[in-house]
Nucleic acid binder design. Sequence first.
DNA 1: GCCAACGTTGGC
DNA 2: GCCAACGTTGGC
Length: 139
Amino acid sequence: MAHWLYKSEPEVWSWDDQVGAGAAGTYWEGVRNHLANKHMKAMEVGERGFFYHSNEGKAVVGVVEVVAAWAPDLADSKGTFGAVTLKAVEALTRPVTLTAIKADARLAEMVLVKNSRLSVQPVTDEEWRIIRELGGLRD
DNA sequence: GCCAACGTTGGC
DNA sequence: GCCAACGTTGGC
């Protein structure tokens, strides 16, 4: 299964907010970027991704899972954009900072490094494994 | 259909 | 707070 990374500004929607939303999860609303939208359309229920704090924190802090596939965002009158529904799965034992990611040569090709502005990104299996390890999670 | 101008994102 | 990178808009 594919892996992903979702960026969120903690002042707007933090990991604690995501945990507080519980098992039902929350609709990942507000994405208005075609590439990010395309990634979410490709997601399947059960696929996991990293939850990343941008601006404040700048670190991968948790793991989320898709609980409902892409659905159109009712706030977008054209129906072009939409989102998946995500629930928190587990927090990293230690956050993996952007600094640490940039310092690791194995992660130099991450979209987070190459195209930092994309809000929903694919993560390779290798990157997934390395960041879980750096974050203190066991498989 | 090109491209300059503008707005937004996000790291520093 | 600054600015680089990127996406979008709109004039031509």
